[in-house]
Simulated scan of single mutants.
Amino acid sequence: MRELVVLGTSSQVPTRERNHNGYLLRWDGQGLLFDPGEGTQRQMILAGVPSSAVTRICLTHVHGDHTFGLPGVLSRLSLDGVEHPVDLHYPASGDAVVRALVALARPGADLRLHPHGAAGEVAPGLVVEPLAHRVETYGYRLVEPDGRSLVPARLDAAGVRGADVGTLVRDGRWGGVTLDDVSVPRPGQGFAFVMDTAPCAGAEALAQDVDLLVAEATYADEDAALAREHRHLTAGQAGALAGAAGVGELVLTHFSSRYPDVGPLVEQARRAAAGSRRAGGTRVRAVDDLDRVRLPPRRRLV
């Protein structure tokens, strides 16, 4: 299963309708928990997400609305007797803050700390890029390797059937038939998480050609001066980022409490995405707490 479980969507402070940040990405056997803000443990209960689903925690930066839920989540892992190790990734400059938060949790979880201080791969298939916020901040990108999809008509024409298909896939050849003869390229699925940043090259690198991009839309376009001051994205900037990067679907979140209705932000993002140099292919939606977003189908290579 590959889906995003939205645990919270508010920036800075929670509201009556929106909890602090929190996003769980189910990716096959992994559960990546991004930026668990205050109240994330309770939101997991409401969403029907067991603590055992969490295998990796990824912090973009150490501001409270992205980290204050960490002690509660770790305590729940311990109370529930979760035995598998949980890897915690975070910016190296926030090490003291992260260790203080970890120290508040009930001991017992098999937690492994992985601070990072530069762009690069931090786990198999998971890379980070620096963003442009008021403190050291990184976004995350998870991409599976490209593969190939078998074409049944080609298999029939080549006379490859039954167990021979498995041999062909395993060895790359069956008799005089190669895997390339009976298959087409299949791009690996990609996911990116861009939070708390001004427009920057790191955000562009993270978003490039992913199927699903989760991005902040803290401010409306008319409040661009506030976005510049606090180093956040407007909705239009998030849309332009996604459109230019060829993103399949853009998920907007991290809304300021000044916008009880985020519909206008969605329209601003849609217009900006449609006006990009790769216009026309990016779907845009806003999410509410407890929404679930399935990863879009893999796109065909042309």
Rank of each mutant, 00 (worst) to 15 (best):
C200Q: 01
R271K: 14
A269P: 01
R18S: 09
G243H: 01
S149E: 13
F255S: 01
R26Y: 11
L290V: 12
G72L: 05
R170C: 15
G281T: 01
G125F: 08
A47N: 06
D221P: 04
G175F: 05
D261G: 06
A286P: 02
V302A: 10
G236V: 00
D288Q: 15
A245P: 04
V293R: 08
R170W: 13
A220M: 00
I45V: 12
D261W: 10
G147W: 09
A217V: 02
R2Q: 04
G147E: 13
A53D: 08
H20W: 09
E222I: 04
D221T: 04
D146A: 13
H116W: 07
L126P: 07
D196Q: 07
L250C: 07
C200W: 02
E136F: 07
A272F: 02
W27H: 11
L301G: 04
L111T: 09
D146Y: 10
S276H: 04
S257E: 15
L24K: 07
E83A: 14
L155R: 10
L150T: 10
L142V: 04
S51H: 07
A269Y: 01
D223M: 04
R298E: 14
A242P: 05
G108S: 14
V6M: 04
N21F: 10
S51I: 03
V160L: 09
G159Y: 08
A235R: 00
A207W: 01
A215N: 02
T234M: 02
R76F: 03
A119S: 11
S276T: 03
F68I: 05
A47G: 12
G176M: 12
G22I: 08
R277E: 15
L301P: 01
R186A: 15
L25A: 12
F191K: 02
M195W: 03
G64F: 14
E229T: 14
D291S: 08
R161M: 03
L212F: 03
M44D: 07
R112T: 06
V266M: 01
E204Q: 14
G81V: 08
G202E: 05
A224D: 09
L4V: 02
R106D: 11
P107F: 09
G246N: 00
R112H: 12
R298F: 05
V302I: 07
D171Y: 13
E3Q: 12
R298K: 08
G37C: 09
A132M: 10
T167R: 15
D110M: 12
L111C: 13
A132P: 06
A225F: 05
D221S: 00
R76L: 13
